[in-house]
């Protein structure tokens, strides 16, 4: 029972990270059919405002030294701002390009972001110790759960409920859902395309920055390459959820979190290093069964 509970908390907290990542990608894909490979690097970039740019091994804190509310706000705003700027500079000019072209553009943008960080901060991972008290374990019905895990699950749940409410009830949310369903039709019915797209990019950037914060407070390290693996899992989550489906992306994220945790627990020790390979293998097998993902949306359905 205790073991099951422990497993549940691990799976939920890992799944929350993946779900938030997948949501950020699905939001942009929904309105623009853009597979944003720069998402992970937006996250890394936002998180690097915590430390001052230096090529030394130990970096002094910059935003990281500020008071907690200000720090969180700055990082989130940095993520949103960077995401919006990337829309202005790059993706706005590619509105009518093929998905393959925009995909390549985002891949290139991610590379530029990552190497800008390399120039500013060098390639060494750096220690950033945020809120050390949060990792102290708490006792919950016999399972030892770090406070941070609970916080992560809590934040994710609150955010998901908030976003679901926004998408269902508010005007902006309605516009975003309409745009995701049929962008051209939505524009003809008076939805302001630029506003919806900016909104999607802003939200996605904020989510990216939030994941960054959660990851850093968990590991205590920032690394210019930390965005890549995270982003890849998030992508795979959106694919198994069904490209373009927001709910599917979230579900896909939690599913991958659960499978990863299960494999971590059950794989023999020698095979544990290959965990991610097994996860991707499981994903491919799932896609054999449902090639369009769990929820098929109009984005993948083909019309003749």
């Amino acid at each position: 029972m205790t073991a099951a509970l422990q497993y549940l908390f691990d799976a939920l907290s890992l799944g929350s990270l993946y779900a938030l990542g997948a949501l950020g990608i699905a939001l942009i894909f929904g309105v623009m059919r853009l597979v944003n490979f720069a998402h992970g690097d937006v996250m890394t970039f936002a998180i690097f405002v915590l430390i001052a740019p230096t090529t030394e091994a130990v970096a002094p804190l910059w935003v990281g030294a500020w008071s907690t509310p200000l720090l969180v706000l700055t990082v989130l705003v940095a993520g949103a701002a960077l995401s919006i700027v990337s829309e202005w500079l790059v993706f706005r000019h590619l509105r009518h390009a093929t998905p393959a072209t925009t995909m390549m553009a985002s891949f290139a943008l991610g590379f530029v972001l990552q190497n800008t960080l390399l120039v500013l901060h060098s390639s060494r991972p750096k220690a950033v110790n945020l809120w050390p008290t949060l990792s102290a374990p708490m006792n919950l019905w016999g399972a030892r759960v770090p406070g941070l895990q609970l916080l992560m699950i809590g934040i994710t749940m609150a955010l998901l409920i908030g976003l679901a409410w926004m998408l269902k009830r508010s005007r902006v949310g309605l516009e975003m859902r309409v745009a995701a369903e049929n962008f051209d039709m939505a524009r003809m019915l008076g939805v302001k395309a630029n506003r919806v797209i900016l909104m999607a990019f802003g939200l996605s950037g904020t989510l990216a920055a939030l994941i960054g914060l959660l990851m850093v407070s968990q590991t205590g390290l920032v690394d210019i390459r930390m965005g890549g693996p995270m982003m890849l899992v998030a992508f795979v989550s959106t694919v198994i959820g069904g490209l373009g489906s927001l709910g599917g992306a979230v579900l896909g994220g939690f599913l991958i979190g659960a499978v990863s945790t299960a494999l971590q627990a059950w794989l023999p020790l020698d095979a544990r290093a290959f965990r991610d390979a097994f996860v991707y293998l499981a994903v491919i097998l799932l896609l054999l069964w449902r090639p369009d993902g769990l929820f098929v949306t109009s984005a993948v359905r083909q019309r003749v």
Partner: peptide
């Protein structure tokens, strides 16, 4: 067997599998 965009993402995970 996947559609174009999903296939691209799947090739990305192929690269990750190789690397792992």
């Amino acid at each position: 067997r996947l559609s174009g965009i999903a296939a691209s993402i799947a090739t990305f995970s192929l690269l990750a599998i190789f690397n792992v």
